[in-house]
């Protein structure tokens, strides 16, 4: 008998391919956490309001709690566990540790994935709400105001924002944007 409440999906997560049978109600976040044991992405609100579950889906940041697993079928997903290639911390991760860009650490996986997305979006020339619209051809300079605006979907109740902004800017400078 066919079970109409479940579906088979494929996910490529942190460069590893998986075939999964998931409850149709299962979110991408729960599939990562419960089915694949990748508990880096966190469930802070389950409503897309806090950003703790942020992952990269085909290179773009998404809140995985508002993404149904079946809708991510075929996607390449990067979680915080996949950011340190070969066990070596990225400059962004290293800057978070050195500059104390977190306290409790619960929002950190989302902040990091979001920051990777921010840097890529900036590199691609995407403007934000605080970007001056005087010259559409010019890539906006990534300054504190730009980072704050672009990272505002990621809440941190410990209030580590100033250190997070410093870490993102430093990582951007060190890697020419590809942090």
């Amino acid at each position: 008998m066919t079970d109409h409440t479940r579906s088979g999906i494929s996910l490529r997560v942190n460069d590893v391919s998986h075939r999964l049978s998931v409850d149709n109600r299962r979110t991408l976040l729960d599939a990562l956490r419960e089915d694949l044991g990748l508990t880096g992405p966190k469930k802070g609100c389950d409503h897309g309001q806090c950003g703790a579950c942020t992952v990269l889906c085909d290179g773009r940041r998404v809140v995985s709690c508002l993404t149904l697993a079946v809708a991510a079928d075929g996607a390449a997903v990067t979680t915080v566990e996949g950011l340190a290639a070969g066990g070596e911390l990225r400059p962004l991760q290293e800057a978070f540790v050195r500059l104390d860009g977190f306290q409790c650490g619960f929002c950190t996986p989302g902040q990091l994935c979001s920051a990777v997305g921010v840097l890529a979006e900036h590199e691609a020339g995407w403007p934000s709400a605080v970007t001056a619209d005087d010259d559409p051809e010019r890539t906006p300079e990534l300054d504190e105001a730009e980072v704050r605006e672009r990272m505002s979907g990621n809440l941190c109740r410990c209030g580590a924002y100033p250190s997070i902004v410093r870490a993102v800017l430093e990582a951007a400078a060190r890697q020419g944007g590809a942090a």
Binding site: L38, T39, G40, P41, K42, T79, V80, E81, L83, A84, L89, Q93, F96, V97, R98, D100, F102, G105, F106, T108, P109, L112
Partner: peptide
């Protein structure tokens, strides 16, 4: 820096 910093930036710290 925090002793557990490495765990927290790689998703390895388990809550």
């Amino acid at each position: 820096p925090r002793i557990e910093g490495g765990l927290k930036v790689t998703g390895a710290a388990r809550y």
